[in-house]
Simulated scan of single mutants.
Amino acid sequence: MSKNNRELDIIVYGATGYTGRLVCEYLNKQYGVNGDVKWAMAGRSQDKIDSVREEMGIPADVPTVVADSKDLASIKTMVEKTKVVLTTVGPYQLYGSDVVAACAKAGTDYVDLCGEPAWMHEMIAKHQADAEASGARIVFSCGFDSVPFDLGAYFLQETAKEKTGSTMPRIKGRVRAMKGTFSGGTLASFKATMAAAAKQPEMMKVLGNPFALTPGFTGAAQPPGTAPSYDEDLGSWSAPFVMATINTKNIHRSNFLLGHTYGENFVYDEMMLTGPGVKGEEMAKAVAADKSMANDPRQPGEGPSKEERETGHYDVLFAGSNDKGDNIQVSVQGDKDPGYGSTSKMIAESAVCLVKNPNAASGGIWTPASAMGSLLIDRLQKNAGLTFKVEG
């Protein structure tokens, strides 16, 4: 069936999980049951879906779909009902491969929260051609990894074109502030990736390669970002940022998919600012030595209280420069904790953006910036509590 004639716009697969519930809560509040977005809840158990729907006060006329990653027929049926599958069912390397394959075959658009670069590398190799042929727009990493960073770099380059007539060959992404926790799902993905890498040493090459998601292209040498350093330009110490491994790869893929509009020798790194002086240096060293993520006991489905989500926030600076002495700074801020409150709004708006803009990109495997760019920035600022600001 043509994508345009399908009964649903968006199916939230994983609707009974922690993040899936937040996505459903947001879609219900923002678009309602009688709004112009037709959405449905999907999960493994009808009883569980019904129970979650009642618990969250979601109207009974929101459709439901039973689908299980272990039942390929149910996955095929699900993806053929809708224009977009929004999946929060991770780790994706364990539960996502058949969903991507089915969407790529059926011409169904797809968004996820993936921060698993080795799996993404594999999916691009396996399904890019099918997605191009069917018209499916597959967009990975539509949560905190990597929307604020991918779109932040894109926003800086668009600003640079307006102000200087060209893009910036060097961008520093620097987290200035962040309050919130990583999700249990993010932790599970991290642990699954490390476990897989221990069994498959070739995966370490993918994880360590900033150009792992740009098939056939390797650009300029990139800063490793793995040790504390003092940044003269910004007057602050910087510490390694745990999500740089995935975000940098997505930003280089965006540049690749946008025809290297950032330049073939584009350099990007991402760290966390810890402040000036001895105190800043000590904090940077403490962050670099922190290994708590590997030992965090939380599981998928576990997360913070509503108050913790509501009081979270983040602020990321992007500083661009060129060899002519031009400097441009922009920032991206979010009004909820990054791993849950903001992520659930970002992925929901990514899915709606694809529904509302059927011609935003052709079939293929994309990043948020390369598929949706300014269209998604506008939606996030209007609806999802993000602010994109030119600072200098």
Rank of each mutant, 00 (worst) to 15 (best):
E232N: 12
P223S: 09
S362A: 15
S370C: 10
G277W: 01
F190W: 11
S238P: 00
V111G: 02
A294Y: 12
K3F: 04
P368Y: 06
H252Q: 14
V79E: 01
Q93V: 09
E307F: 10
D290S: 08
D335L: 09
T88W: 03
P201W: 10
M271T: 15
P223L: 09
E55I: 07
M78Q: 10
R298V: 13
M346I: 01
G35L: 05
N209S: 12
T167L: 06
A136F: 00
R309L: 00
R44L: 07
R53D: 06
C24D: 03
G339Q: 07
T64P: 00
V242I: 14
D47E: 14
T167Y: 08
M78R: 09
G341S: 09
S254D: 14
A198P: 02
D378V: 10
K105Q: 13
P148C: 01
T387W: 00
L380A: 04
M372V: 10
H260M: 15
Q93C: 08
T77Y: 11
W366D: 00
G363W: 09
A227H: 08
D145Q: 01
E232D: 15
D378R: 11
A286D: 10
L22P: 01
P63A: 10
T88F: 03
V355M: 07
I75K: 08
E307C: 03
G363R: 05
A239W: 05
